[in-house]
C-alpha cells in the first residue's frame, strides 16, 4: 500500500447487508472519504493491516462474529482503531457495552446523515491523535532501549525526584559520575529539561 494511502484515512464499513453496505459507502464517499467495505468481521480481519489511518463503521448484529465481538477482538489484539457502531434498534445494554469497549459513537438506524458523518469525522480525528500519541510512545520507548542498565537506573531515580547526591549514595558512586550519567540520559532521551523527561516516562508508563 502506498504511503499516500497510508496517511489518508479510510472508513472501513462492515455490514452483512449488501444494500446497507453499498448505501453507506455511497453516503460516506460523498464527503470525499475513502471507503472499504466488508460483508463480515472475518473478512475485515483478513484484510485489515493494523496502523492504517481511519475508522471502523460496524453493524452490531451480524451472523458469525458480531460487531461487538469484533470490537473486543481488536482491543485484545491491541489494535486501536476508532469504532462507530450502527444498530437497527438500540438497546441500552448493548450501547453501554459498545461505549465501554471504546466506541466513538452508537448510532441507530435509520439515521441522519450528518450524525453519521460527524461521528466518522470525530472518529478519524481521534484516530489521528491516537496515532500521533502512539508514534511518540514508540520513539520514547526506542530511546529508553538505548540506555544502559546503569543509565536506566539513574533515569528512574531522577524521574522519581531524587537528587544527584541521593542517587550517588544509593548506588555507591560519586555524585560526579551520576552527573555524567544524567547528562547522557538527557542526551539519549532527547529531553530538553527534567520536566520533559518526566513527561516522557509518565506517558510511556501510563500507556503501559
Amino acid at each position: 500500500m502506498s504511503e499516500a494511502n497510508q496517511s489518508k484515512p479510510v472508513v472501513f464499513v462492515v455490514d452483512d447487508d449488501q444494500a446497507m453496505r453499498n448505501s453507506l459507502k455511497w453516503l460516506i464517499e460523498s464527503v470525499g472519504v475513502h471507503v472499504e467495505s466488508f460483508s463480515s468481521a472475518d473478512d475485515f480481519l483478513a484484510q485489515y493491516q493494523p496502523g492504517r489511518a481511519g475508522c471502523l463503521v460496524l453493524d452490531v448484529r451480524m451472523p458469525g462474529m458480531s460487531g461487538l465481538d469484533l470490537q473486543e477482538h481488536l482491543a485484545n489484539r491491541n489494535i486501536h482503531i476508532p469504532v462507530v457502531i450502527i444498530t437497527g434498534h438500540g438497546d441500552v445494554p448493548m450501547a453501554v457495552r459498545a461505549m465501554k469497549s471504546g466506541a466513538i459513537d452508537f448510532i441507530e438506524k435509520p439515521f441522519n446523515d450528518e450524525v453519521l458523518l460527524d461521528a466518522i469525522r470525530r472518529a478519524i480525528a481521534h484516530g489521528e491523535q491516537q496515532r500521533s500519541h502512539h508514534s511518540e510512545h514508540l520513539q520514547i520507548q526506542q530511546r529508553l532501549q538505548n540506555l544502559t542498565p546503569r543509565e536506566y537506573e539513574v533515569m528512574e531515580m531522577v524521574t522519581e525526584g531524587k537528587s544527584n547526591k541521593e542517587i550517588a549514595n544509593a548506588l555507591g558512586v560519586s555524585a560526579k559520575t551520576i552527573e555524567a550519567h544524567r547528562a547522557r540520559v538527557m542526551e539519549k532521551m532527547q529531553a530538553g529539561s527534567l520536566a520533559e523527561l518526566v513527561r516522557m516516562v509518565l506517558a510511556v508508563n501510563g500507556a503501559d
Binding site: 446497507m20 448505501s23 453516503l27 435509520p110 446523515d113
Partner: peptide
C-alpha cells in the same frame, strides 16, 4: 424494514 429504509436514506 429498517434495512432497505436506511439504505434508501443513505443513498
Amino acid at each position: 424494514l429498517n434495512q432497505p429504509l436506511s439504505a434508501i436514506v443513505n443513498y
